[in-house]
Design a protein around this nucleic acid. Structure first.
Lengths: 221, 221
DNA sequence: TATGAATAAAGTGTCGACAATATAGCCGCT
DNA sequence: AGCGGCTATATTGTCGACACTTTATTCATA
């Protein structure tokens, strides 16, 4: 899943990536407390490193911190999920709009190829790669926006929280073929340089995805 | 300007607020380097406090950091401004949509009162309070969305960067009466619970504002 | 003179210890 | 027995020192 070119140069980086991974995958359960001393012994680093890692996790909205009290992993709630998807709808919609304007022809061709390759895998029915492919698709469009702030907010900011909801609610699942069709329509709109339609389709795509997840989630949280 | 209820409980808080203020207002010039040792002597706190403050400034996109090299205040560029306003358009548009859905009748009445009071000040021609009134208006709608993630991203995240552009480019200025009309239309849409229109009008409002600033900015950056 | 390696200087990254604050448990009081 | 205040403990916040990396300087060599 590391198609983000994130290389850990410092110890705080490594610890941050490790903690983020464990939180997203639920190894550190949501709602649990993050004790600085405990973590520093567990990872064999100083508390300063842990503190920096926790600060970064807070920036990703993966933990919440109170002064003089400590940090807790965020709780997963239906309201939080809805709020998150509203933000995705706004930001990724804008990303699709800008991608329709700013992606190069080669990049669009690449994206089309990705989609057909993806279609081959869909036929084999392997749902995990469906998940990865979906993330990859959205990631490319985000990059295609060429908006550095937008890219940062989505990839560094909220995408790991999205993954956290998906992983912990077990969201590898259906909606495969329908989502695939939606992806195709979006790419066509981008290829036609139709900014308005690209944004609209992306927003609908994310809204459908939200509704789908919401249904599943009723009896899980 | 402190209508955000941000109280500094810890030393790192105070340093962060102080540094943020100085960066936004240009006292620490954009593009300049932030030396940890230098700042720690200047503010009479330890480097650990400075480091935490700088980390938070990085989360706000006010400084950029490179491992083993240091942190610099972000450079103000025309491209950066455009990117920032694209994000505002997406997020505040969504905020207006959600505000039309979630604000209470009392809150809407309050907002209307704010607008008429604001109109009185516009007639006196004091442009500074126009600026404050504009920020206040947007802030209330953001809060009205009732989306915690959205509120956090806008108020903690990008709003200080928006202010930095405005302050350092000297953006107290015209567009007063037209902006006021736009505000009125937005409130009407919210009062009518017309989510679609509220979002559309807010997006247009921000787009106009962007175009206005872009024109002024040509010969400044 | 220009280039490159070796070295010195400065700055960031990391650490362990101390100080300040919040939480938990105990004791006395009503 | 229940409640409020106090003490003890544990955790976070802050500090100064050391280790490592980057950058600037110096010096030798082609």
């Amino acid at each position: 899943m590391e198609f983000f070119s994130e290389k850990a140069v410092t110890a705080a980086d490594k610890t941050f990536f490790q903690l983020r991974k464990e939180i997203v995958e639920g190894e550190i359960p949501s709602g649990s407390k993050l004790s600085e001393t405990e973590l520093s012994t567990k990872y064999s680093v100083s508390r300063a490193v842990i503190r920096e890692a926790i600060n970064r996790l807070e920036s990703c909205h993966l933990v919440e911190r109170k002064a003089n009290v400590g940090a807790r992993v965020v709780a997963l709630t239906p309201e939080g999920l809805v709020e998150l998807y509203q933000i995705r709808e706004a930001l990724e919609g804008m990303a699709a709009r800008q991608a329709a304007k700013n992606m190069s022809d080669e990049e669009i061709a690449d994206l089309t190829r990705l989609l057909t390759a993806h279609f081959q895998e869909v036929k084999t029915g392997d749902s995990y790669y469906q998940e990865a492919g979906d993330v990859d698709f959205h990631y490319r469009i985000i990059l295609g926006s060429k908006n550095k702030h937008l890219i940062g907010m989505l990839t560094d900011g909220i995408y790991h929280l999205v993954r956290m909801y998906r992983v912990q609610l077990g969201m590898a699942g259906p909606r495969v073929t329908t989502a695939f069709d939606e992806h195709q329509h979006i790419v066509k709109a981008i290829a036609n340089r139709d900014e308005e339609l690209a944004e609209l389709l992306m927003r609908r795509h994310i809204m459908y995805s939200k509704n789908n997840i919401e249904h599943k989630l009723v009896n899980k949280l």
